[in-house]
Write a protein that binds this DNA or RNA. Structure first.
Lengths: 201, 201
DNA sequence: CCTACCGATCGGTAGG
DNA sequence: CCTACCGATCGGTAGG
């Protein structure tokens, strides 16, 4: 019955994600993570071989989780403007539900740009392919603005969502107490306005 | 003749900005900064009382530099769509010229969200006031989309620019060798499309 | 601007 | 899962 060990590993990953997101990889000690879980550092190192291995496991779990939550939205249909907005809203929701996901991802991109380029490249490849195809079809059908750089637009929209959630506690709260939601509404609006041709203006 | 000391202080600030941007505050030791400057750690601590004081001095210099470069662009005129694009392009240029500026700013927002909210609030207040007024006037004159949340839009555009430059080595280089420029072009395009009413479509 | 040094903490190991 | 411990490095000080 490996349930106890799996449970401990999962709690280590949870706390590591939380602390790495808030204080950064270098700003978080293994002792601090272990303390939050309620064990000692050598016990933590029984579950994960090294701090680097723990870092990678946290990132892998985050990306896996994303891939488990999102596909059903896209698989339903890829035509129609509503589908696209539903996808954008779902990505926003995934990160807004737990801003530490966005903070961790952003910190990883800042800390290890080369590794993350490779990781994100592999991870995003299938999404990119589908979305670029969708955008190009939209151009052909006259629903999408012809000067959109499809690949750059998709990456840009992802950056916009992740970045906005990641620094929401700085930028968002410069507005009112609903500032974070206003920022996210604005992200969705700008993503829409930057893609579709709206004829009824 | 305090020139030597000022020169050393400036070189310390340069190297600190570079290393904090690349490896983070916690990931950079005072010895590493001193070594890049060509002095020893205790000598560095003669110029800056503590590591925290150096961090603050680096951030202050960055924001001061921004305020010295940008105002002339805005002061010329605040009317006309071209002015707005010129301002966006100038902000893009300021960060793209030295991506470490964007990386440092983003890391500070992630590391110390509460302090940065206050700092950025004070720093951005005059810019926000001018730009929000400009956008609201644009709405009244029918040049700007009526559903724009002016304050949220301005903050969002800043986030988009700083964030895109900060993670350019991850996202931008997922495209081709001009990927970073394509990302920045897309930022400028989306910022425009999210604000103005383009009547000739 | 330097050498020499401080206590504290780091990631990781030994061994049970 | 633990205690005990390792060498290395951290920010900072003393004193010149």
């Amino acid at each position: 019955m490996p349930e106890l060990e799996n449970d401990t590993s999962a709690r280590i990953l949870d706390e590591a994600n939380r602390l790495f997101a808030r204080y950064g990889y270098e700003g978080t000690s293994l002792s601090a993570i272990a303390s939050q879980v309620g064990i000692r550092k050598p016990s933590l190192l029984h579950h994960f071989e090294s701090k680097q291995a723990l870092r990678q496991a946290v990132l892998d779990r985050l990306l896996d989780h994303f891939n488990q939550v999102l596909p059903q939205i896209l698989k339903v249909a890829t035509t129609g403007d509503t589908r696209f907005e539903a996808l954008v809203n779902e990505v926003i929701l995934f990160f807004a539900q737990d801003p530490d996901r966005a903070r961790l991802l952003y910190r990883e991109m800042l800390d290890r740009p080369d590794e993350l380029r490779e990781t994100m490249g592999r991870f995003l490849a299938p999404w990119l392919e589908i979305l670029v195809e969708y955008i190009e079809r939209g151009k052909a059908e006259g629903r999408v603005q012809p000067d959109v750089d499809a690949r750059a637009y998709v990456l840009q929209t992802i950056q916009m969502i992740v970045g906005t959630v990641a620094v929401g506690s700085t930028f968002g709260e410069l507005l009112d107490d609903q500032g974070n939601q206003r920022q996210l509404n604005e992200v969705a609006r700008v993503a829409r306005a930057g893609l579709f041709i709206e004829e009824d203006r």
